[in-house]
Simulated assay, not measured.
Amino acid sequence: MRNDARLVLLDKHQVETLLEPGQVVEAVREAFALHSQGKGRVFSVVRESLATGAVFGIKSGDVQSQDLLGFKAAGFWPGNRSLGGEPHQATIMLINPITGRPVCLIDGNAITTMRTGAAGGLGLTLLARADSTRLCVFGTGVQARVQVSFAMRVLERLASIRYVTVDGQRDAAFEAQFIGRCEVSHASDRDVAVAESDVVITATPGSGPLFDAQAVRPGTHFNCVGADTKGKRELPEGLLKRARLFVDDRIQARQIGETQWAPDTACIEIGDLITGVTEANRQPDDVTVFDMTGIALQDLTVARLVHARAGETGTGTSLGWPW
């Protein structure tokens, strides 16, 4: 019986200090590559509604050659808003695959936000037109902001951002985050905003189509974030049929992503572009869609990065965890 085992705890503020965008991008790139090469496994997703009105899920996986194993328990608790808290909640656990003992317990909110933003940045790098200058984003919450932040990192010619809100009102806090870095304006007509944009990011709760399919012009790229549960969608009927579809995980996208609404649509996994299994061969008039459902390997590679940096910097709380 071992009595010297330790469990590292990392809270929200500690995780935020350990996340560096460039390093997260590389960790997410590795996750997609491992998935493409069959070296990283993604286990079946749990996603269930609760009697409380919340949605609870588990994403898990492993990389056997790297002794990487773990899961993220996460979901959406809308009632948290009335408590002054964040409705999205996530907790990540890294597990020793040899013994099954927990190694590190991490607040997963910041990791989820950053790894999703990094995935969006990779999607834009691989799929958006290099001459893209105009971006439209649906939503102004945490995920919308991180998606725009990564877009500004990778779209060198980005000059304007138009944002669409649920209530049709301006969001001064959203504008303040990006003003001065490029032109930022509120869009009163969502179809016009889509029609006049090169890149469209949808980062909403996924309650239904956000715009008309007829508004989409040739050459537009979409990063779709909000559809992550059965029944959710952001894109209008018919758009996937005229688009070139890219996904993070083919099976998962058909189960809970935007692809659930057109499951027979041919698609390419983003990891296959990263590893060179296939090429995007994007043509100027192609409409492209990146259906981002988020895979467990993203959480695990970024959590491993955070755990390693915590050890290097002496961050976190180490508890005796004998067995």
Rank of each mutant, 00 (worst) to 15 (best):
I270Y: 13
K241C: 08
I256Y: 06
T288D: 09
L245C: 07
C267K: 00
Q298V: 10
A303H: 01
L245G: 07
A296L: 03
L297F: 03
L273F: 10
T275M: 06
C267M: 11
D264F: 12
V277L: 09
A266N: 07
A253Y: 05
L300Q: 08
P263F: 08
D285V: 04
A262Q: 10
V289Q: 02
A253T: 01
I256N: 04
R250Y: 11
A262H: 13
A266P: 08
Q283T: 04
I270D: 05
D291K: 09
D285C: 11
V302L: 09
L235C: 00
A243V: 05
I295G: 04
N281A: 14
L240H: 05
E279R: 15
L235D: 01
D264L: 15
M292C: 15
L300Y: 01
T301Q: 10
E279T: 12
D285M: 10
A243Y: 03
Q298F: 13
V287N: 01
Q298I: 06
I268H: 09
F246E: 10
A266W: 00
N281H: 14
R242T: 07
R254Y: 02
R244F: 08
G271T: 11
A303L: 03
V306S: 06
G294W: 00
L239H: 01
D249Y: 02
D285R: 13
V277H: 11
T288H: 03
E269F: 04
Q298Y: 05
D248W: 09
D285K: 12
V302S: 05
T301G: 04
D299R: 05
G238W: 02
P263L: 07
H307Y: 15
F246D: 14
R254H: 06
G276H: 12
A266G: 05
E237T: 15
A303M: 01
R250D: 14
L245N: 10
D264E: 15
E269N: 07
D286N: 10
I256M: 14
T265S: 12
M292S: 15
